[in-house]
Write a protein that binds this DNA or RNA. Structure first.
Length: 558
RNA sequence: UGACCCAUGGUGUAAUGGUAGCACAACAGAUUUUGAUUCUGUUUGUUAAGGUUCGAAUCCUUAUGGGUCAACCA
């Protein structure tokens, strides 16, 4: 039953429940409201809920919490289903809180009959006023004295559409003096004459979250209803409804939601970024949404691994986004196909090169697709007289620890030959325009008999057949670690340089890239094809850079 | 001026009255035809004060700090 990892507090509860025989099988649920796209925080909840039923042999339902028709849309329902599936989970049942509207209506009638609920004509302001504050008791108004018959009649009329939005509500009759504000006669039903994405115009009254969620759990025989910390105070109400209604006793447990450094997790704020065009959409690769991360090149495996690593507890937390990047690098390193792409090129002319056998200025060389995975096979690359290397892989006046190319020095060109820099050619302005080098024919990769040893190995492409591609480099969306914690509006902290589009010169094999493939551009990072890519204009997203200890070294010296 | 939840290295998370461990980060070194990967090692922690106990991160009390609660949102 247990794994190598120690149990989190919810697993402990479940194991106790299973051992005591409280349940023979567990049932969890993932209950998104279809009013936005899923983000990495939801992934934590998804992995938890589905992971639990997988681990202990149970069920997990997908239930859309669609009790507020004004914010919910079918588009969101579809995206949520796609994202959960992509993450690798299968739900036992697809349910909707709106499936239970009739049943929920009956529950309200039962409470009214038992004298536990009443219809209130007060305005929103009046109700807020009467509710008191956390330190001051609330007061009950005269409507609480209505008879059961009157309440039943009014509730029925509410359903029939006799009243307009805000004119009447149904409240539970609990305790206006409770230190828990939610117990001060909470609202059960409100009138909303708006179109619902599933029930259309059938209803004009809709249950509130508290009156829908627990009962929906109960109807589905959910054994462990897992939610985030801010619902702790709702638990008392959750249990009250179940007790008064005498229905299956689901139990609520709360864990701390995920916070990620340099990003925001609020659906409301993410929606704002989309609506106000700070990003191109919910699936913008800079977004912490599942769809954004998918487009960026994250794999389901890496996200699941991340969710496993961060753990489940009740303490407020802010996870270093570096951990997420570690997880995706770890997975991509195993599966990504290696390719060579030069971003800021400088031309290298191999002055002594000529292919003797073919009497040509180029030759084919073999290189591995993935040095971490022999099964990935080999591919051909073209070496020739004119090559392109990265401008910052050359230094006219090298620093001590620099072991790339510099005048008189040698480097290995990956999977090709060792070259030596003989001459720097500059233009009128003094900029380096090309490098004249000689190569050592006997230093060919795989059959090196030169006896030469070099410290540096560079990536390169043939100048004549390099393929120009567009590469989108992403950086964090925010400049501060915790944007939502700041006093000022979160949008003031948006990183203006979160997207940089650059040109790259890729080896010819890049033309065969598939959108399902992941790539490592050697010594650069991990990339994947963007959905906007075409055969004429290849567009790559940078998922994440490679770790770069040289960049760190340079920084240290400054 | 209330109720509730929480407190372990820089960040997360274990240890369930008996050796404070793991991951990321950081640092140092080895290997390397990717300054990547891999490998080895190092640094850093129980919020505080009392109490219970042979023994406390763990139980109790108080304090301190952080979070949540006054939507006809979920």
């Amino acid at each position: 039953m247990s794994t190598d990892r120690s149990l989190n507090f919810i697993e402990e509860i479940i194991e106790k429940d299973l051992q005591s025989g409280a349940y023979s099988q567990i049932c969890t649920r993932f209950p998104p409201e279809p009013n936005g796209y899923l983000h990495i925080g939801h992934a934590k909840s998804i992995c938890l809920n589905f992971g639990l039923s997988l681990k202990y042999g149970g069920k997990t339902n997908l239930r859309f919490d669609d009790t507020n028709p004004t914010t919910e849309e079918v588009e969101y329902v579809e995206s949520i289903k796609e994202d959960i599936g992509w993450l690798g989970f299968k739900w036992s049942n697809e349910f909707y809180a709106s499936d239970y509207f009739e049943k929920l209506y009956e529950f309200a009638v039962i409470l009214i009959r038992k004298g536990f609920a009443y219809v209130d004509d007060s305005s929103a302001d009046e109700i807020a006023e009467q509710k008191g504050t956390p330190t001051k008791s609330g007061v009950r108004n005269k409507y609480a004295d209505r008879t059961v018959e009157e309440n039943l009649k009014l509730f029925s009329e509410m359903r029939e559409g006799k009243y307009n939005d805000g004119e009447k509500i149904v409240r539970a009759k609990i305790d206006m003096e409770s230190s828990n504000m939610l117990m001060r006669d909470p609202i059960l039903y409100r009138i909303k004459k708006s179109h619902h994405h599933r029930t259309a115009n059938k209803w004009c009254i809709y249950p509130m979250y508290d009156f829908a969620h627990g009962q929906s759990d109960s109807i589905e025989n959910i054994t462990h209803s897992i939610c985030t910390l801010e619902f702790i105070s709702h638990r008392e109400l959750y249990n009250w409804f179940i007790e008064k209604l005498e229905i299956f006793q689901s139990k609520q447990y709360e864990f701390a939601r995920l916070n990620l450094s340099f990003t925001i997790m609020s659906k409301r704020k993410l929606l704002q970024l989309v609506n106000e065009k700070y990003v191109t959409g919910w699936d913008d690769p800079r977004m912490p949404t599942i769809s954004g991360m998918r487009r960026r090149g994250y794999t389901p495996e890496s996200i699941r691994d991340f969710c496993e690593k961060i753990g489940i507890a009740k303490r407020e937390n802010i996870i270093d986004v570096g951990l997420l990047e570690f997880c995706v690098r770890e997975h991509l390193n195993k599966i990504a196909l290696r390719r060579m792409v030069v971003f800021d090129p400088i031309k290298v002319v191999i002055t002594n090169y000529q292919n003797k056998t073919l009497n040509e200025n180029f030759e084919y060389l073999n290189t591995e697709n993935n040095n971490e995975d022999p099964n990935a096979g080999m591919r051909k690359i073209t070496f020739g007289k004119e090559l392109l290397i990265e401008r910052n892989d050359f230094m006219e006046f090298p620093t001590k620890k620099y072991f790339r190319l510099s005048p008189g020095q040698m480097v290995r060109l990956k999977s090709a030959y060792i070259i030596k820099c003989d001459e720097i050619i500059k233009d009128e302005l003094g900029n380096i325009s090309e490098l004249h080098c000689t190569y050592f024919p006997e230093s060919k990769s795989g059959s090196d008999t030169s006896g030469l040893h070099v410290k540096g190995t560079l990536h390169w492409v043939g100048a004549s057949n390099a393929v120009e591609v567009e590469v989108r480099e992403y950086d964090r969306l925010f400049n501060v670690e915790d944007p939502s914690r700041e006093e000022r509006d979160f949008k003031e902290f948006i990183n203006a340089n979160s997207l940089k589009s650059v040109k790259g010169f890729a080896e010819p094999s890049i033309k065969n890239a598939l959108s399902s493939e992941r790539f490592q551009f050697l010594r650069k990072g991990f990339y994947c094809l963007d959905k906007e890519s075409t055969t004429e204009n290849l567009i790559f997203n940078r998922t994440v850079t490679l770790k770069d200890s040289w960049a760190k070294e340079i920084k240290k010296d400054k």
